[in-house]
Nucleic acid binder design. Structure first.
Lengths: 209, 209
DNA sequence: GCATAAATTATACGCTTGCATAATTGCCAA
DNA sequence: TTGGCAATTATGCAAGCGTATAATTTATGC
């Protein structure tokens, strides 16, 4: 006569958050195929039936997890913005350094990002999220570039700052990926110094730090 | 009394190649989870049992497919090198343009790349392949940068060309990703022009085209 | 305290998966 | 022409999957 497993009732929000967190952990650790309903439930400390109680389908849970991940990354980035100095040049420099060093550069985030990238081409919802976060980041970068140029008394190049923002964004993306994927190939502060020097040349500007 | 399905005997190499191709098609279309033994066999025009005859396990087939993909990309890149002009500046310019325009920029390649990126952190073999192809591409770029600088009579910046190659590689990677992922966000030749202008500023050099 | 509703566990079902193995067929050598 | 062997098909199996649903326990309001 095995006793039934005892349990505590948690609020809906807490349980949903725990399930989402467990889902992300599973994906980060073993890829999407490791994120089975049973594995997620086990990691969240509940039995598998409970998942159905909060998410009608597994697909729904995956989508919620992705949305949570992306908004968390966006929030983190926005929060950091407030911590940056007010001077436009130092501000841009800090923003760049932030994007290519831990904790933004991180194998786990990279794994999760790669997993969602895979869904973007065929899942419209995922695509919309990616589009939104990409443009938000790029627009933020473009604004900071414009302010930095203005502060230094420089003219934006012919064609405006759009091309600079696209290139700068691509540069940061690429460095983020390689820094996360092959961290031991780069010295301690190499990424930061490479990124800032590249932006200095890109913008024809001297950046602090 | 249904007749048994008729078949033709193919050489081992042809069948292996067909199975690998079918595997890549499946992954590109529906992600790794869509690459089931049955789906691959169906696409290759054989029955599922045959896969076991050529690959001891599905994992082995996946690894072979990944290796094939990567070496094909490397070969394609190397083949293009011969088609580039001899003049170092035009050569670098052509190399850059090539990296950010179709057929290199391509949603299918992007999907396959994302799928393998996911495996890099936990599969040592995948990691080794990624490391090798990344460094090969970067070294090639670094050599072309050095030649272009020399041809223009410029000195490499303090710290040498390593930093420039890392940054340039990251720039191309980032543009490749976004160009493949959100193609309709960029005008016809915008990627090419952005990439070349960015390199011009990065290297303080005028590039043709 | 007790009834009641909701949260959670427990169990089961049908399907798909990767893999094994037996049965057959196409092809080449003699 | 015809054996014989390897390539291929066909069939089956156990495990794991997502989902459905019934049974039970926790908490809450009266």
């Amino acid at each position: 006569m095995n006793a039934r497993r005892p349990y505590r009732r948690e609020g809906e929000e807490a349980r949903r958050a725990a399930l989402i967190q467990a889902t992300l952990d599973c994906i980060a650790e073993g890829g999407p195929q490791a994120a089975t309903v049973r594995a997620i439930a086990l990691r969240a400390g509940v039995t598998q039936g409970l998942i159905r109680h909060y998410f009608a389908t597994k697909e729904e849970l995956i989508a919620a997890a992705h949305e949570s991940l992306m908004s968390r990354l966006t929030e983190a980035s926005a929060a950091r913005l407030d911590e940056l100095p007010a001077d436009p040049l130092a501000r841009l420099s800090g923003f760049i350094a932030n994007a290519v060093t831990p904790p933004v550069v991180d194998p786990r985030s990279m794994a999760l990002w790669a997993a969602s990238m895979q869904l973007v081409p065929r899942d419209p919802a995922m695509r919309a999220v990616h589009e939104g976060t990409y443009l938000a980041f790029r627009d933020r970068l473009e604004a900071m570039i414009a302010e930095a140029l203005q502060a230094a008394g420089r003219q934006p190049p012919p064609g405006g700052t759009r091309a600079l923002a696209i290139a700068g964004n691509a540069l940061l993306d690429g460095l983020w990926i390689e820094g996360s994927l092959l961290p031991e190939h780069f010295a301690k502060n190499e990424m930061k110094s490479i990124a800032i020097k590249a932006f200095e040349r890109l913008l024809d500007l001297e950046l602090p730090e």
